[in-house]
Every structure is written in C-alpha cells, then in structure tokens.
Design a protein around this nucleic acid. Structure first.
Lengths: 152, 152
DNA sequence: ACATCTATATATAAAAT
DNA sequence: TATTTTATATATAGATG
C-alpha cells in the first residue's frame, strides 16, 4: 500500500506503529460511515482498543465514545487524537449503549474460557472459597451474589 | 470509486444496494483484520446490521461469542479473525437480547467510570489474587475477565 | 505528534460470467 | 446471488514540514 507494500505482521517500530494505527483507524471509521450512508438502514458499531488500551468507538457517523469523553475531561496525558478534543458529547446515552453492547460481546466471547480462568486463579490460592466451587453447582441466587460482590 | 464515483447517499436500486453492501462489508472486515494484525494488540469488535436486519460481526479473537450464537444459525469459525453471518435473525429474540443488555445501563456507566480510573494505573504488579485488588488498579482486560468469569 | 504530499497499493462500481 | 474482470477512485506508506 502506498509507497511500499508492507507485510501483514506486527509493526515493530513503535512510532511507526502508532502512526499507522491512527491513520488506519480513521479510515476504518470512514468506511463504516460510508457504508451506513450508502446503505441507509445498515447499523454499524465498532469499538477499538489501541495497543495502549485506549478506547475508540464508532456508531454511524459519530466517532466519539463515552470513554473518550471521560478521558478528555480528566486532564489525562494529551496523547489523544483530534477526534477526542473538545467534544461536547451530544449523544451520551447512545454511546453508552454502544459501549454496553460491545462490552457484552467481549464478555460473551470469553465465557468459554471463564471456567478455566477461574480454576487457574483458584489454583494459585488454594482456599475454600465460593469461586472454587463448580459453577454448574451454584444456584441463581449464589451466582447473583457472586456477580454483585465482584462488581462492587 | 471504481468505474464511477457514486454519491454518498442511499442506493435506491435494491439489487445494486445488496451487492454494494456485501462487497463493502467484506472490505470493512478485511481492513479491521489488517489493523489487528498490523498493530498486534489492538482489539476490534464490529457489529453490522444489514438493511434487511441481518447481523454480521467481526472480532479478532478465535473464540465464538454467545451473542453471535444468539443471532445466527450458522457459524464459520476460523483461527484468527471471525466473520459471522446470521441467516435468520429472529427479531423477537434480538429485541429481548438488546433490552436485556440495555437494562444494564447504570451498571455500565459505573464501569465506564471505573475503566477511566483504571487507565491511570498501569499494571505495576502481578495480579495474583485479583478479587482482592482495588478496582482502581485493574486494567481493562483484567476487569473484563473478572466480569466474564462472574457472569459465566 | 500531526498535517500534507506523492507514488503506489487497494478498493470498488459497473459489467460480464 | 456470487464471483471475476477491469477501469477508476481511494487508501496509505514513507517523506517532509
């Protein structure tokens, strides 16, 4: 692409990688935007976590995420791109919903590994605790208590 | 683009629109896949609802998501990236699912705030007993794993 | 860290299959 | 409806400011 074709492997040079990420993320969102407009009726949601764990999201023509807005309001390092600066966030609820849905997706995809993760963790700390009990043997009340405790 | 430039408005011709949608959706997913590979560490999730309400999703992980299983009849797993297509989208079930997710709005708001806080703190120490660590010191991945494990 | 420029690589609209 | 072809439109890697 461009001046030279690059192999589809990880870009090792840090600065180079950052530049490429920013450019391509913008293009990806643009493509999504075009697809929404062209198709009119297509719904697209995208969430991207950069290598540095910075969140970016797309919902139709918006390129702002609620997380990005949080970041810009809290004097965090000014390493954010232009699309984050000075955003007033008119569609707070919309972005929240986007984040929810995609977070849910992320969570769901890991459910298959969840049990294994639990066992790994408990193996490091062999004590008699509820998280060591097989989930299959827990009732709904216990599961809900577990969830509440963790989220607290 | 291509033989002729087309205006960024809704394509009225049904057949034409369908073709364009399929082509561009494939391209969008390809771009996302490249970004994942090139950046190595970037996490991307995309959800697309076609004009006919058919769901398509992209994720860079190899694990199939429960959400996709809800939405689709057929799944085509691959090693690195995944593209799912739902043959039949039971809108009733879909709406129930979305409602279920949206009901967690308050919860997600808190999580969004928590993630912002977490971003401030890098994972300075190995997480052995994650359930004892302050939420403020957990990063995004750790938080998601926590919640996933719980919900699973 | 960005924005711009430019040569090349891709994407893609329309047509053909 | 999907795939392939092909001429043109975009995307973008690398250089530069």
């Amino acid at each position: 692409m461009g001046r030279q074709k690059i192999p589809l492997v990880k870009i090792k040079k840090e600065s180079h990688r950052q530049v490429t990420f920013s450019k391509r993320r913008a293009s990806l969102f643009k493509k999504a935007s075009e697809l929404c407009t062209l198709m009119c009726g297509a719904e697209i949601a995208i969430i991207v976590f950069s290598p540095a764990q910075k969140p970016f999201s797309f919902k139709h023509t918006s390129v702002e995420s609620v997380l990005d807005r949080h970041l810009s309001q809290n004097n965090l390092p000014s390493t954010q791109t232009q699309q984050h600066r000075g955003n007033v966030a008119p569609s707070c609820e919309l972005n929240l919903r986007l984040t929810e849905i995609l977070n849910e997706s992320e969570e769901e995809k890991k459910k298959g590994q969840a049990m294994e993760d639990m066992r790994k963790v408990s193996a490091r700390r062999p004590m008699i605790n509820w998280w060591e009990a097989p989930v299959e043997e827990m009732n709904m009340v216990q599961l809900q208590e577990m969830k509440s405790a963790l989220e607290s």
